[in-house]
């Protein structure tokens, strides 16, 4: 009984720890995105949310692997101001992204667009998968599973003898060696 209680208590601690960890993970993204955005948000919450969404998809060209939403670079700040202005002016995401691409190229978008220059990038992984599947299918057709040869009369007799227990395993081994 005591042992069971110890286990139960241990489980309760684990459960509490799990809740704590999950809670921490839920909290973690909040301060991270709040730190870099030092400039003034738009007064309209819906517009600000749209602006933030667009910012998250625009690459900071100075720090390269951060979006302008979470970069502290001065250029990222300027681009945030620009995105907010454009959102406030009623521009949609496509228009704002098109403007930035016309200035900085496709690279300014965090996820590369699908166009002739990015064909290899987008088509290589599914192409590789497809190629591998075709290869496997082709191979499986070329070498059908080898069927075991049916036993001849003497082998069948030996097998019957082993199964009926008339010969010991050692005899069977010896028979194998003799072959």
């Amino acid at each position: 009984m005591r042992g069971w209680q110890v286990i139960k208590k241990g489980l309760a601690i684990k459960k509490g720890l799990a809740i704590l960890i999950v809670g921490l993970f839920c909290l973690a993204p909040l301060p991270a995105s709040a730190v870099a955005v030092d400039d003034r948000p738009l007064p309209d919450a819906a517009q600000e949310a749209r602006a933030r969404l667009i910012m998250a998809g625009i690459r900071c060209l100075v720090c390269q692997n951060q979006s302008i939403e979470d970069s502290n670079a001065p250029l990222a700040r300027d681009l945030r101001v620009l995105v907010r202005q454009q959102v406030a002016a009623g521009k949609n995401r496509e228009e704002i992204e098109a403007f930035l691409v016309s200035r900085y190229g496709d690279w300014v978008l965090m996820s590369p667009p699908f166009n002739p220059r990015t064909l290899i990038l987008w088509l290589f992984p599914p192409g590789l998968l497809l190629g591998a599947l075709v290869f496997l299918w082709y191979r499986s057709r070329q070498t059908p599973q080898a069927r075991p040869r049916p036993l001849d009369a003497s082998e069948q007799a030996r097998l019957d003898a082993i199964l009926s227990g008339a010969t010991s395993d050692r005899d069977a081994d010896r028979g194998e060696q003799n072959r």
Binding site: L61, V62, L75, D78, L79, L82, R103, Y104, G105
Partner: peptide
């Protein structure tokens, strides 16, 4: 002053 024309030129450094 505010770098806006720089953005129009695609200046990033």
């Amino acid at each position: 002053r505010d770098g806006r024309v720089g953005i129009d030129f695609g200046v990033y450094g």
